[in-house]
Simulated scan of single mutants.
Amino acid sequence: MYRRQLHFENSEKGGTRKRKGGTVTPFGFRSGDKVRAEKASVIYVGWIGGYTQTQRTMNNVSVYDHNWKRIGQFSPNKVELLQRSTRLCVD
């Protein structure tokens, strides 16, 4: 689903390569799952597009609308799975 980025960061010089993209999150969501997400007492319905791990304690799940425009990044604790992705694209 996503191209591998072998040279995203130079890990030979002591650095570790950051996670970039992917289809499965460690929170039980997969790319394309329909979810309900809450931020600032506003509820959004959209689809999972991936997740970002900026620090060890900071994780966010990206949620997109039906045109794959990003609605925002949400805490996994405030995201609820509505329907598992079947990889069937329907408008």
Rank of each mutant, 00 (worst) to 15 (best):
Y2A: 12
R3H: 11
R4A: 09
Q5P: 04
L6E: 12
H7D: 12
H7I: 09
H7N: 14
F8Y: 14
F8P: 05
E9D: 11
E9G: 06
S11D: 13
S11A: 15
S11I: 09
E12F: 11
E12K: 13
K13H: 12
K13T: 14
G14K: 08
T16W: 08
T16C: 09
T16D: 10
R19T: 06
R19C: 06
K20S: 05
G21L: 04
G22V: 08
G22M: 08
G22A: 12
T23E: 05
V24L: 11
V24R: 09
V24W: 06
T25P: 03
P26T: 08
G28T: 07
F29M: 01
F29Y: 00
R30P: 01
R30M: 08
D33E: 10
V35M: 04
R36Y: 04
A37N: 05
A37L: 03
E38W: 05
E38R: 10
E38H: 07
E38F: 02
K39R: 14
K39Y: 10
K39W: 07
A40W: 04
V42F: 07
I43D: 06
Y44N: 04
Y44K: 09
Y44G: 03
V45F: 08
V45P: 00
W47D: 01
I48D: 05
I48A: 02
G49M: 06
G49Q: 04
G50R: 00
G50Q: 02
G50E: 01
Y51N: 01
T52Q: 05
T52G: 04
Q53A: 15
Q53E: 15
Q55E: 14
Q55Y: 14
M58I: 15
M58V: 15
N60E: 09
N60D: 07
N60T: 07
H66I: 15
H66L: 14
K69M: 12
R70M: 14
I71W: 03
G72C: 02
G72N: 02
F74C: 00
F74V: 00
N77R: 11
N77V: 02
V79H: 00
V79R: 00
E80C: 04
L81S: 06
L82W: 06
L82D: 08
R84V: 12
R84W: 03
S85M: 05
T86M: 11
T86K: 13
T86P: 02
R87D: 10
L88W: 10
L88V: 15
L88N: 14
C89R: 15
D91T: 10
